[in-house]
């Protein structure tokens, strides 16, 4: 796969990411990450002020799976449907062969009654590596411009 083939694969990975969440296929969603991945949801409020606090953080794939299992088994979260709108992706290949990718997103939540609200708007700052020709997120950093979480943060952004 040449550089442009890899670039297409990075973009396709970012597209898969949002659709798997929106289709509530979180078990498959976990498989888009490397074993030692970093996944974080941050508020821009903290990023700008230089504070490290996350809204949610996972430091390996096990923790991601724990989140999903916990959502399925233990948490009684608000039942809703997510819809992500993904902006154009800006990519760059680093000297070590990994790719960085950045794209804006908005995510709308709809209730069981079909009422829809904007839940969050922000930017993905990702690092993608290839494992046996397959792109995986080594890092997925979600930076929210929306400081306040409406109601609760249950499903991933």
């Amino acid at each position: 796969m040449g550089a442009s083939g890899e670039r297409d694969a990075v973009v396709a990975l970012m597209i898969d990411y949002v659709h798997l969440i929106d289709e509530d296929r979180l078990e498959d969603w976990v498989e888009l990450f490397t074993d030692d991945c970093t996944y974080k949801i941050l508020s821009r409020e903290n990023v700008d002020a230089g504070y490290p606090l996350e809204l949610l953080s996972c430091h390996n794939k096990g923790m991601l799976r724990d989140r999903v299992v916990s959502l399925r088994e233990a948490n009684l979260y608000n039942l809703h449907t997510d819809k992500h709108v993904l902006g154009m992706v800006r990519t760059n290949q680093e000297s070590d062969g990994a790719w960085t990718a950045q794209a804006n997103f908005s995510v709308y939540q709809s209730t069981l009654d079909g009422e829809s609200d904007l839940f969050a708007v922000g930017t993905y700052r990702d690092r993608v590596v290839f494992d046996d020709g397959r792109p995986l997120f080594a890092e997925k950093i979600v930076v929210n411009d929306t400081f306040a979480v409406a109601r609760m943060l249950s499903t991933p952004i």
């Binding site: 809204l55 989140r67 109601r151």
Partner: peptide
């Protein structure tokens, strides 16, 4: 920071409070 995953609006042991109030 790791334990902050338990609390707050996305906390594994606290996310339901907002929903309960609503």
């Amino acid at each position: 920071l790791n334990q902050a995953n338990l609390v707050g609006p996305g906390g594994l042991i606290s996310m339901e409070d907002g929903e309960a109030v609503e």
